[in-house]
Design a protein around this nucleic acid. Structure first.
Lengths: 154, 154
DNA sequence: TCTCCACTGTTGCCTAGGAAACTAGCTCCG
DNA sequence: CGGAGCTAGTTTCCTAGGCAACAGTGGAGA
């Protein structure tokens, strides 16, 4: 005789499920737009982090982007290969490096920012202004409550 | 003489940014809890999809989970290696396979579902019931508007 | 000054998933 | 009934990131 299975909460019962579903989709769509410019989301985030700032050590980027230093090394290598950023030795500390946008990289950032604006509009313009605000406030509350710090890249 | 940089919208100006920030964090925390049971998020989603259902072809799982068939093959291989699911040849179609939970897999699903419940509570219990509802409605509206279908795993 | 330890960045090695080529079986149509 | 094309799943190659070991440099204390 068959024992009935214990009831199990549905996947869709979790807010985390819906959050991830929307987030994945929005990010994936954005990745597609960036790909047309030959850039990945992680590359965009790094370039945006460098834009308008002094040359920055990789360790700082690792912290801001929530990635390991190893991953930053490789990500930087790729951007250097595309001549979008440059790596330079730190003047004072023989161990340290700094990363900075090239002119070409600097010129690209505003174009990519436009794509980000457009992507956001594409998904969130269907909400009323008050709803957008409500969503933003809720998300920021969750960030604060969960002590969430890193810039998302994945 | 230095030309001032064009102003560029801040990363944090986008709802997609906050969405991803929270989503990543929630999922990462969940992944940590699952890891204690020796399971990944993708493995959990596959097991949950099989729970209480008839044996299912990989192609159907690929569709539901928003992954390629190739990825499903490998994911299934891993779960088979852990004796949590089994693969069987389809009775009628010589090409087709079916996947189904083993008794051990079936027994594990409720334990994992508890972890999912707990993870959701950890992040979202700080919201008032009305706020939870509001967030859920907004996310579901976005899903509907963006024609989003696949179960998120990444 | 020399030694030990901390810190910075880099380098394998490993995992996970996508894209596309490939195999095997099915189906339809001549 | 035989071949062309379709379909299901697998396999291969590639990318991206984490982890951990590593090398080189700096700094503090004996």
């Amino acid at each position: 005789m068959l024992v009935p299975l214990p009831p199990v909460s549905d996947l869709t019962a979790h807010l985390g499920f819906w959050l991830r579903m929307v987030s994945n989709h929005v990010s994936h769509a954005f990745a597609g737009k960036l790909a047309a410019e030959g850039v990945t989301v992680a590359e965009w985030v790094m370039m945006r982090a460098l834009y308008g700032k002094d040359p920055m050590p990789p360790s700082r980027l690792a912290e801001e982007m929530g990635m390991t230093r190893g991953a930053i090394t490789k990500l930087a290598d790729r951007l250097i290969g595309k001549t979008l950023i440059v790596r330079a030795a730190d003047r004072d500390d023989g161990r340290a490096q700094t990363l900075a946008l090239t002119p070409r990289g600097t010129g690209l950032v505003p174009r990519l920012a436009m794509l980000a604006d457009r992507n956001d509009a594409e998904f969130f313009d269907c909400l009323m202004p008050a709803e957008r605000t409500a969503l933003e406030q809720l998300l920021k509350r969750l960030v604060a409550h969960g002590r969430i710090t890193a810039t998302p890249t994945e």
